[in-house]
Simulated scan of single mutants.
Amino acid sequence: MSKILVVGSLNLDYVIEVENMPKAGETIFGKSLKKIPGGKGANQAYSIGKLGGDVAMIGAVGDDDAGQILLNNLKSVNVDTSGIEIVNDNVTGQAYIYVDDNGQNCITVISGANAVVDRDMIDRNMELIDDAEYVVMQLEVPIDTVKYVKDIAISKGKKVIIDPAPAIKNPDTNLWRGCYIIKPNELELATLTGKKLNNIEEYKKAAIELQKTGADFVISTLGGDGAIAYDGENIKNFDCKKTTVVDTTAAGDTFTAGLVIGLNEGKSIEEAINFGQSAAAITVSRKGAQTSIPSRDEIQ
């Protein structure tokens, strides 16, 4: 099976459980605080590794305890961490995540070492791109680096999947040109297209609009409404896998991991989406980021 490369962020998540989300100017008491390995890039790499994929990662951590926690956690599921550099005089990325009693979350990210993932770092780890069939990215490292990797990967015949989170208002649409898959959730789809989206038909129209910017596929996850996929000709609906929602953290990252694992194993787009949905359904039934990600045996 060909190698998958993830280029992206690594954060140590500080997860704060609350009854309800705090409002502006409001002071509330949290129920608990946990430190959990996270970051969208690391979540995806960890999930791919735990699902049995041959995966490497390019990214950066600080020279601190948080960085070692993240590296050790990735190594525990056989992620190739040779492309993750330890940056002196910088802190490891951090995320502060509020999770309420309904399982919904809001997240504040401190970039830290993620902000220094630059072209030079990519050049130093070019062999990892050469070895990959699929290159997976998000938007928690500098956009210039994402564009650079995308252009190099496409020129080398790799299939690029971008999870556009956090979404950017009025993005340079050239960022999507030549990508194999763009995978926004419903909120990111609205931000990227500059539209208010309220129902499945509006989501479909937005996906069609986004695909016209140059990606082969737009696959959008819609929470309880399942997912949609558009390939430039046909748009398909995928029903949500039923589960009890405890915490939605890392659900999208697990879906992306399941999707790319499925494609790398020769599954069709439809089969890969269903596999990603099954993985994400288990993730949302548990608390935390990487601590909630299932194994291959659990999905099967």
Rank of each mutant, 00 (worst) to 15 (best):
residue 120 D to R: 14
residue 52 G to W: 05
residue 189 L to M: 13
residue 83 G to E: 02
residue 112 G to N: 08
residue 251 A to R: 01
residue 115 A to Q: 15
residue 103 G to A: 15
residue 120 D to H: 13
residue 67 G to I: 02
residue 117 V to A: 04
residue 195 K to N: 15
residue 8 G to W: 00
residue 70 L to S: 03
residue 42 A to E: 03
residue 37 P to S: 09
residue 25 G to M: 10
residue 189 L to D: 02
residue 209 E to R: 07
residue 89 D to W: 08
residue 13 D to F: 02
residue 118 D to E: 13
residue 3 K to Q: 13
residue 108 T to M: 15
residue 200 I to M: 11
residue 154 I to Y: 02
residue 128 L to H: 06
residue 81 T to H: 05
residue 286 R to F: 07
residue 244 T to G: 12
residue 142 P to E: 04
residue 93 G to T: 03
residue 11 N to S: 13
residue 223 G to Q: 08
residue 218 V to Y: 01
residue 150 K to I: 02
residue 215 A to H: 01
residue 67 G to W: 03
residue 86 I to Y: 05
residue 197 L to I: 11
residue 62 G to A: 09
residue 81 T to W: 02
residue 202 E to H: 07
residue 109 V to G: 06
residue 299 I to L: 12
residue 177 R to K: 15
residue 176 W to F: 14
residue 208 I to F: 09
residue 237 N to P: 07
residue 139 L to K: 03
residue 283 T to A: 10
residue 63 D to G: 08
residue 214 G to L: 07
residue 294 P to Q: 13
residue 59 G to M: 05
residue 244 T to I: 14
residue 272 A to M: 11
residue 64 D to P: 08
residue 49 G to N: 06
residue 65 D to W: 09
residue 277 Q to D: 12
residue 148 Y to D: 04
residue 292 S to V: 05
residue 91 V to P: 00
residue 128 L to Y: 06
residue 281 A to E: 06
residue 84 I to W: 00
residue 2 S to P: 11
residue 28 I to R: 07
residue 44 Q to C: 08
residue 12 L to V: 12
residue 274 N to T: 10
residue 160 V to E: 04
residue 161 I to K: 00
residue 196 K to P: 03
residue 5 L to H: 00
residue 290 Q to A: 10
residue 106 C to Q: 13
residue 292 S to D: 07
residue 244 T to D: 15
residue 156 K to S: 02
residue 103 G to D: 06
residue 283 T to E: 07
residue 96 Y to N: 12
residue 275 F to P: 01
residue 123 D to M: 12
residue 64 D to I: 02
residue 229 A to N: 04
residue 26 E to C: 14
residue 288 G to Y: 03
residue 216 D to V: 06
residue 283 T to Y: 05
residue 295 S to H: 08
residue 5 L to M: 03
residue 205 K to D: 15
residue 49 G to S: 09
residue 68 Q to I: 10
residue 281 A to P: 03
residue 185 N to G: 05
residue 157 G to C: 11
residue 219 I to A: 03
residue 66 A to R: 12
residue 23 K to F: 09
residue 116 V to G: 03
residue 76 S to K: 15
residue 208 I to H: 05
residue 187 L to Q: 15
residue 92 T to I: 09
residue 256 T to Q: 00
residue 154 I to K: 07
residue 212 K to Y: 10
residue 19 E to H: 13
residue 273 I to H: 01
residue 94 Q to M: 12
residue 84 I to S: 04
residue 224 G to F: 07
residue 292 S to N: 08
residue 240 C to F: 05
residue 102 N to E: 11
residue 243 T to W: 10
residue 166 P to F: 08
residue 163 D to M: 04
residue 182 I to K: 01
residue 284 V to Q: 01
residue 196 K to F: 09
residue 217 F to N: 12
residue 246 V to S: 08
residue 169 K to S: 14
residue 118 D to C: 15
residue 85 E to S: 15
residue 263 L to A: 07
residue 300 Q to S: 14
residue 226 G to C: 11
residue 140 E to I: 06
